[in-house]
Structures are given as C-alpha cells and as structure tokens.
C-alpha cells in the first residue's frame, strides 16, 4: 500500500535539483573561495594556499589600486540608490493601492512593470542616449533656446538613474503586495475615529509597511552592490560622486578581470564582496525582524 510520504519518487524527483545545485552552484562558489588563495606563477594560476592576493589587495586598499575606495563608492551609491528606489516604488505602490479604482488596479500594476520585460542592457543604452551631452534631453533644451545643459552622464547620478529604473518594477510589486495586505478595516476605523489622512499614513500605513520597505531596501542594496552595468554604461566606469571620480566595486571586478585575467585576484575581490554583502544582508534581516516584532506587539 502506498503511503504519501514514502515512495521511490521522493529521491528520484529531488535528485536532479540537488545534483544541479551541487555541481553548478555550490561547486563554483566553493571553488571561487578556494581560487582566491591561489597565486600566479608564469602567467598561470597555481593551486595552493597563499595569502598573496589578499595581502596585495589590502596593502594598497586605499592607495594605488584603490579597491577600498571603490568599495566605499559602491556602498555609497548602493545605499543612496536603495533609498531613492524604495521611496519611488513606495510612492508608486501607495498611489496604485489608494488612488486607482480597485477594478483597474491589476492592469495598472501590470502596466507599471512592463519595462521589467525589456532588456536591461538596452534600457541602459536608451538612458545613455537620453542623458548624454547632445542627447534627447539636452537637444530638447537647446531647441527650447536654453543655454543650460543637463550634465549627469558619466557621473554616479546617472548610475543611480539606471539602477532605479531597473529596480523600480520589482520593488513596486514587493511594496504593492505589502501595502495591499494592510487591513482596510483598520484604515476605516482610524478615519471614523477622527484621524486625518496624513495621520492614517504616519501612524498606521507607514508602520505596517515597514517590513516590506526593509525587504525592498535590502534587495535594492544587494542588487546595486552587485551591478556593474549601470556603473559602466551610465557612470562611464569611474563616475563622479561626492567621494570623487571612482568606479564602483563591481565595475572594478569586471575591469580588473578583463585587463589582467588574474583569476585568483579577481576571485579574492569577489570573496570580499560576498563578505560585505552577507554583512549588509544580516543587518537588513536584523532590522526587518526588529520592525516585525515592533508591529506585532
């Protein structure tokens, strides 16, 4: 007699997933951590355990190759991008949930995430043509007879525009779902008891969406830290920010690899990024749990 939990199918059906993840995900990841300790001899990567790469990276962390500055640039750009993108997506999600009639909401949401389905590289290219020195915006300004030029291309501001545009559809979905799950009865009750709309927002909706906001924000930080494309195409590699003309860390990993093809060093750089991200993620999760606990009390 068959019992629901005991069947040869169990192993058979799980095996492909486990094998694929083991071979094609865990193995490369562990390999990456290991390669970071290899060294280069006569232009070939030699297996072993040496701290050469890390010593090399950290000895010139804030001088010479300036990996440290690139890391700071990344954290600064990723942090501010996450705040901007989350604020933009939250305002849009609120507008969708409260200013659009319910029967139109699904269509409006789908409409908002259409850009997600177009290619990211091509969207960045389009932004390049919009923002560039003689691009769409500046040629329009010139047509209007203005001598003022809108110059953000090849700065980290442009990098942020590209990233916010990439992140917005995903964040809008996360935040819309989180706003939608707020019990409407609570809002009506608050209104009945004399709250203004602004008070309903600050005392009810905002605290209840804090968990969604932190989820969205952490996601945005992680994606922005790992993204090299916007920094390369819109930030021009080493874009200007208040920290100076510095590449982001992800751009640096990409250019470091294509210029030196030193896989052990690139692996060590990637390992450092993993450590930074895990730290960022742990901080995000800790904040989110704290927020959730506060709400449930």
């Amino acid at each position: 007699m068959k019992t629901p939990n005991d069947s040869p199918i169990k192993l058979l059906f799980l095996a492909p997933l486990v094998i694929w993840i083991g071979v094609m995900f865990l193995a490369p990841l562990l390999f990456l951590l290991w390669v970071g300790f290899w060294h280069i001899e006569a232009y070939r990567a030699v297996p072993g355990f040496s701290l050469t790469n890390y010593a090399e990276i950290f000895s010139s962390f804030f001088t010479g190759s300036r990996y440290g500055w690139a890391l700071l640039q990344s954290l600064w750009v990723a942090g501010t991008t996450a705040i901007l993108a989350t604020a933009f997506a939250y305002a849009t999600a609120l507008a969708l949930a409260f200013a659009v009639p319910p029967r139109l909401q699904r269509a409006a949401l789908l409409f908002a995430i259409v850009p997600f389905w177009s290619s990211y590289v091509l969207r960045l290219y389009a932004w390049q043509t919009i923002l560039s020195g003689n691009g769409v915006i500046n040629s329009l300004l010139k047509q209007a007879g203005l001598s003022w030029k809108f110059e953000v291309i090849y700065t980290q501001i442009a990098t942020r525009i590209g990233l916010v545009h990439y992140l917005a559809p995903i964040l809008i979905v996360i935040l819309y779902v989180s706003v939608l799950s707020i019990d409407r009865v609570l809002i009506e009750a608050a209104r009945e008891l004399g709250c203004t709309r602004w008070q309903v927002f600050t005392r009810l909706i905002f605290p209840l969406s804090r968990f969604g906001l932190l989820t969205a924000g952490s996601f945005a930080v992680i994606v922005s830290l790992g993204d090299a494309l916007s920094g390369n195409l819109l930030g021009g590699g080493a874009g200007q920010s208040i920290l100076g003309k510095l590449p982001t860390y992800a751009s640096m990993i990409m250019s470091d690899y294509s210029s030196a093809t030193n896989l052990p060093r690139t692996s060590a750089l990637a390992t450092i990024l993993i450590v930074v991200m895990v730290a960022a993620l742990v901080a995000g999760v800790a904040l989110a749990t704290a927020a959730r606990r506060k709400v449930s009390q």
Binding site: F25, F31, L225, D227, A250, I253, A270
Partner: peptide, 8 residues
C-alpha cells in the same frame, strides 16, 4: 549577485 557567480 550574478557577478560573483560569473567569476566562480
């Protein structure tokens, strides 16, 4: 991030 996976 895919960047890290790519290197691996």
């Amino acid at each position: 991030p895919p960047l890290i996976l790519g290197v691996g």
